[in-house]
Simulated assay, not measured.
Amino acid sequence: MSLLLMMTGCTPAAPALLPASQEPAATIPPASHPWAGTEFIEKTFEWSHWQYDDVSWTWSARIPTALYEDYRSRPRPTTGDYAVYAADDGDHEILADLAATLQRIIDQLGIDEYERVHFIANFVQQLEYTTDMDTTGFDDYGRYPVETLVEDGGDCEDTAILLGKLMDAMGYDVVLVRLPEHMALGVREANKFVGTYYEYEGVKYFYLETTGEAGRIGMVPEEYKGQAAYIYDFSPRAIVTHTWSGQRVDATYQMLVTVTNHGAAELRDCTVRAGFDAGNEQMWNAVQSEPFSIASGESTDIALTLDIPNYPHTRLLVFVVHEGFAIDKSLSRWFDEEPVEEQS
């Protein structure tokens, strides 16, 4: 579940434009990796905490190469709900072992609840920050936690996903905080928490930076202060995207819409609604599918036929609807607009 919280005025990103008769290409992973042909990937991580200047701790993991390759080969869903990368439980044993190691050290040190959060965060904050463009060649490329561990880091989305799933496994109530150009974590209010928080479903979640070692509860970097945030919890749920293709047949437009559920729960009684943009949030010749359900990890195809209106300046609008709300949407280019050629 997600919610947009307005700290100050902010306009969320517009839906991606889809050509009228072409599905977007899937984001594929880089072609090769240095562990190909091995059975396990041996990793050792070292981290420290500011209260213990002369001490560092290590955690070692044997990550099955096949598990890493499985996550690495998965398409990256075109959704802003990055909790999709925490939905799979294939990494349960690895994160449970890390969680047990952190908990054992915390108990030995006798750290109070406030500093426990920072001690756990330090493990992730001290991973290397890398940009998606430098490591994958893509502008935006979310990573599953196993990928972030194997690759020794990632960008803000990757570290927020890893820390969020780790803390969730340790019993903390956390949410993803998605700002316009950044992502962090929100941790449920506890003793000594002060600073910036987001109220979500009646609970205060305090901002926690997951990149860099200076991140403390409630402290938002200067460049992100006052921005609106989408909030995503880690509850098992359906996370839906769609693609579509279509063509004109006489006076009709025939579409095939593919709806995919990337989440951890079944989606029931949803519909696809499509029509031609009439302006003022209205549609010409709108049609709606029969209700359908999609299991976790499954896709379904929905065929629709629309009558083409006698107005050349229009475009197709497509919505996946659940309980009266659009949970995914897309639009074509304007029908009377020529495609723009790429300039070399």
Results as ranks from 00 to 15, higher is better:
190 A>F: 03
151 E>M: 14
96 A>R: 13
261 N>A: 08
121 A>H: 00
161 I>R: 02
178 R>L: 14
224 Y>C: 03
1 M>V: 13
228 A>D: 01
200 Y>V: 01
235 S>V: 10
57 W>F: 09
323 E>P: 00
285 N>V: 02
231 I>S: 04
67 L>W: 03
286 A>M: 09
118 H>L: 14
174 V>L: 04
146 V>A: 11
156 C>D: 00
181 E>Q: 11
219 M>L: 15
301 D>L: 12
66 A>K: 13
305 T>Q: 12
269 D>N: 09
228 A>S: 14
303 A>E: 09
246 G>M: 12
318 V>W: 15
57 W>T: 02
119 F>V: 04
40 F>H: 10
248 R>P: 10
247 Q>D: 05
187 V>A: 03
321 V>L: 01
207 Y>K: 06
316 L>D: 07
262 H>C: 14
223 E>Q: 12
114 Y>S: 00
220 V>A: 03
63 I>A: 00
200 Y>P: 01
279 G>E: 01
4 L>R: 08
177 V>T: 02
184 A>N: 09
4 L>C: 09
230 Y>N: 11
170 M>C: 13
340 V>Q: 08
2 S>A: 03
95 L>E: 03
256 L>Y: 00
37 G>Q: 00
56 S>T: 09
37 G>I: 04
188 R>P: 01
124 V>Y: 03
212 G>N: 13
121 A>P: 07
161 I>V: 15
145 P>D: 00
303 A>M: 05
225 K>W: 00
224 Y>S: 01
185 L>D: 03
229 A>L: 00
310 N>Q: 10
24 P>I: 07
286 A>Q: 07
194 V>N: 05
8 T>Y: 01
97 D>N: 11
291 P>G: 07
105 I>G: 06
61 A>C: 05
125 Q>V: 14
98 L>H: 01
265 A>D: 00
233 D>G: 04
315 R>P: 09
252 T>S: 04
160 A>N: 06
78 T>H: 05
314 T>S: 02
254 Q>M: 13
192 K>Y: 14
239 I>W: 04
124 V>I: 14
301 D>P: 05
57 W>Q: 09
214 A>V: 13
135 T>C: 05
308 I>S: 08
19 P>W: 14
145 P>M: 08
141 Y>L: 02
278 A>W: 07
